[in-house]
Each structure stands twice: as C-alpha cells, then as structure tokens.
C-alpha cells in the first residue's frame, strides 16, 4: 500500500496519483486541502508507536509500505483553513518521523533550502562549484560585491519564499537604498544554460532549459513564454555527486539547479527537496513521475507502523 500525502490544488500530486492509478498500484490519498476529513490516532506498545489514519477512504487498518509526501501550501491567511491544515501536517510529520518505510521526502530532512546561502555552503562542502554569494542589508557591502564581481551580479530572496532572480543593473542601484528593510542575497551571475537534475534514488534525469530570462521560471510561470526543455547529459562525476548529496541530506528525490557558462563552468545554484518535476517532464518527456512511482512500489517496507 502506498500513501500519498499532498494537495489536490498542487500540480505534482494529481499527476502522481494518475500515474499510480494507471499502474494499478494500491494506494491511498490524504488530501491536505480537505484537512478536516482526516484523523490520526497514535497507540504505543513497548515504546513502539502505531499510527492510524482515519477518514475519507482511510480505515486505519491497511499497512503502508511507502509514502510520498508533498505538503499543501495554504494560499490564504484565513485561520479556518490554516488551522486544520497546520494541525494535520503537524500530526503527519510526527507520524513520518517514526515511519520505518521509505518516505519521499521526509519533511524533517527537507529544510536546507529554507536558507539559500546555507545551502550554498552545503553544496560547496559536497564538492560542487558554487557562485560567490553575499547576504546583506548594507548598501555599501552590496556595491562592493558588485564591483568585485565585475558588475555581474544577480539578487534574489535569502529564504525559500518564492522570489525570482534578477540581474542587478546600474539603473536599479537606487533599490539598494531599501536594503536596511530586508536582507537580500546577491550572487555572482553565471550567464549561460540552465540545467535541472532530478534525482530519484540512484537514478538521475538531466534537463537542459533554454530561456532568455536570467531566471527561466519567470519566462515559464509568469510571462507564459515558451522555454525549451530537453533531455541532456552532464559528466558522470556530477551526476554521482548529485545522487550522493541528495542521500547525504536524507532525501530520496531532489531537483538540483545548475548554470553552465560558455567556458564550461558548471555552477550549482540550489537543491529543491520538493521539485516540481512535472513542469520539466511535461516539456522534456522524461519519465520522472514514472520513476518515482516505480521507486515507491519497489521499495515498500514489509513491516509498518502506519495504517490507513
């Protein structure tokens, strides 16, 4: 039995569910957008916790062999929505903490991209080439960094709250006066081709993206411009490092972003523990969802303390 925890408003979860249905895989869904439909109970016997999910098709009686989780994001500040969703997610996270089966991905292992500069350090320590990075709320420091990087700098959010990278141009230097209001991340701009590497266990899919925008997501998500995404290759040593780094963080699936410049420098930008892989496979045709479903099926644990 595979348990899928997610949001029916998400783009990834419905596609994964459709794939599970098409594969005739036995699965159960917890849709966090309908949080009040579910209850979790926890029993304990000799120090071992047993969890039962009840409600909306979950009877709390069938053992779970593997779990896919991609928590819903509350798109409102309405406490009647955020309260039940938060409580359900808190209870589910407690359950996942002691679940002995594979979890794609454990939320408690998925924090590193909350602080992007911190993750840059982790990427560097894992042997990736990373762009020089500055986080500051001091205008003079940003200007010094700009000069140091020869005027080729992008800026973006320091946390994982959605923000798009922009090139720092002489005409928008006035905006640096706003820095004391909020720290910002500046990074050496590596101009070139974008790559996304999706890791699924020991497998990896490399996708090359071509866009005129410094952040291809702006072109695709906001300006609705076509971008080219196609299957590609990167050196085996880079792929091995991606797989090892994903495992090192305690993750099974990841999406790692790279930029390659004209001189062949391949800089790692960030690792996303909950990648929106459907965006890439929808354009490149790479079977990422299928590989994730296959992983969930093949790695099911025999013993479980989670029942649905």
């Amino acid at each position: 039995m595979i348990l899928v925890i997610g949001s029916s408003n998400d783009r990834v979860y419905p596609k994964l569910v459709r794939r599970l249905q098409a594969s005739n895989c036995t699965h159960v869904i917890v849709d966090e957008d309908h949080a009040t439909r579910y209850q979790l109970s926890r029993d304990e016997c000799r120090g071992t916790a047993t969890w039962r999910v009840l409600g909306d098709g979950c009877s709390g009686s069938r053992p779970v062999g593997s779990i896919f989780v991609r928590h819903a994001v509350a798109r409102t500040l309405d406490p009647t929505v955020t309260g039940p969703m938060g409580e359900l997610q808190t209870a589910l996270n407690r359950m996942l903490l002691t679940a002995p089966c594979p979890v794609i991905n454990h939320p408690s292992n998925a924090f590193s991209n909350y602080a992007k500069a911190y993750q840059t350090r982790l990427l560097a320590a894992a042997g990736f080439d990373v762009p020089k990075t500055l986080v500051t709320n001091i205008r003079a420091e940003a200007l010094r960094f700009y000069d140091e990087c020869g005027g080729k700098v992008i800026f973006k959010g320091a946390s994982n709250v959605m923000s798009l990278a922009q090139v720092l141009k002489p005409q928008n230097m006035d905006r640096l006066n706003l820095l004391p209001n909020c720290p910002t991340q500046f990074q050496e701009f590596v101009a070139g081709v974008d790559y996304r590497v999706h890791v699924v266990g020991n497998d990896a899919f490399v996708t090359r993206l071509v866009s005129r925008d410094e952040d291809y997501r702006r072109a695709a998500l906001i300006e609705d411009k076509a971008i080219v995404a196609e299957a590609a290759e990167l050196p085996p040593s880079v792929i091995r490092r991606c797989i090892e780094f994903t495992k090192q963080l305690g993750l099974i699936v990841s999406g790692i972003d790279f930029k390659e410049d004209a001189q062949g420098r391949l800089a790692a930008l960030e690792l996303n523990p909950y990648p929106q892989f459907t965006f890439y496979e929808g354009r490149s045709g790479q079977p990422i969802t299928e590989t994730i479903v296959d992983y969930l099926v093949r790695h099911q644990a025999a013993d479980s303390n989670v029942f649905v």
Partner: peptide, 27 residues
Amino acid sequence: FVYHETIASWFTVFDSVPCPVINRFGL
C-alpha cells in the same frame, strides 16, 4: 517575507561562525 528573509539570513550566520554557539539551533 521580511521575517523569513531575516530568519534565513541569521540562521546562515550562526551556522557559519566557527566559534562555539550555544545553541546552534537547527532549522
């Protein structure tokens, strides 16, 4: 937004300093 940018930045600072930090809390 400002809250998360600030917390993420200071977490990075405290994670990075080489001296003892009591406590060097996790994310």
